[in-house]
Design a protein around this nucleic acid. Sequence first.
DNA 1: ATCACATAATTACGTTACGTATCGTAAAGA
DNA 2: TCTTTACGATACGTAACGTAATTATGTGAT
Lengths: 195, 195
Amino acid sequence: MSQDSPKRGRPPSKAARDKALSAARDILFEQGFGRLSVEAVAARSGVGKPTIYRHWANASELAMAALMAGFPEGGAEGATLEQALVSQLTDLVRAFATTRGRQIAMALATADPDSELTRAFRNRVILSSRDAGRAMIAAAVTRGEIAAPGTVEVVLDMIYGPVLYRLLAGHQPLDDAFATALAAEAAALLSRPAP
Amino acid sequence: MSQDSPKRGRPPSKAARDKALSAARDILFEQGFGRLSVEAVAARSGVGKPTIYRHWANASELAMAALMAGFPEGGAEGATLEQALVSQLTDLVRAFATTRGRQIAMALATADPDSELTRAFRNRVILSSRDAGRAMIAAAVTRGEIAAPGTVEVVLDMIYGPVLYRLLAGHQPLDDAFATALAAEAAALLSRPAP
DNA sequence: ATCACATAATTACGTTACGTATCGTAAAGA
DNA sequence: TCTTTACGATACGTAACGTAATTATGTGAT
């Protein structure tokens, strides 16, 4: 499908799209989410405002698109579950601990939850690590390293939820030490023999 | 301290403050966070705009103040750790699952993290349940119901983080069933014998 | 080559909300 | 009464919104 019309008229300029995204990213890093407006991106990039609105519905979606590019994949490697978790959670925590992290949280919270781009953003930023984690747990179960947990989805929530929690609540630091401790605690609990 | 001046001049009107808060809450529930503006609150409440700015720095702070009132306390009761957790997490999940929940997340993400009111909000909404949880775990340890976990703070993150995680990421439902499953999984993992 | 068409950039517009300043009025203590 | 402080009303300049009209430009079809 989607071979309906072999393209009539002037094609959308990938250059304009990239210039807008790049300007949005610059503004996000330099001035933060609050300063990101469609007008500012238009002014900085030289791309016309209507063109930006042709690509994204509002500033939140533009922000998400800009933040999505260059976000690390969720995968990780390691011989044991704990090693794999440490590696993955360290990457994740580092990505969130930068200025980018709070901006991502803002974009997530602000954006329309049902939007197409919001879903893509969640898949890329939130759920990819989660999927990798699901595979890691399955592998550990097959290895006999841990017993199968009662509800895998809930266990995944317990592993990845804390990262967002610390970012938003800010009650405790979000750093490498936390990533290590979280991986260790999760692995330790899961490694205990099931009754 | 703070007996500096035994009050000169016209005292701030508690009535005006309450009217503004109540109007803000109404707008939040009827139209959501995006529609909450200082102007709208002023128009709806009859309170002057400058008066509102005298009380709160911006719309986010006003929203937090409005949301803070009427949020459930974090406490919970139960003979076993799991029972207490089920009760507490059900309350928490219900509070977040309503429209209010997403608005709270938005206010949290949007507001200045260092603001005075933001800290108060976090204490009230986020950390009170966490503190109750810490007590519940300590009690369960003393009862011999569970072994002492490696890092209590991390375990608390693993219990309460998932709620915010599901709210923001939206990958899985945030409902009573989830509260029950989360409590069960946490209690089951903690109840396993330490190696 | 020329036509039809979709997109580009520019410009302008009406709207909403911002946060501040000024004003005269109202309520308290001195 | 006088002083002080907060009140409501109003007005202001600024910023950004999202849309429309316009002209220019690049591409496939005729």
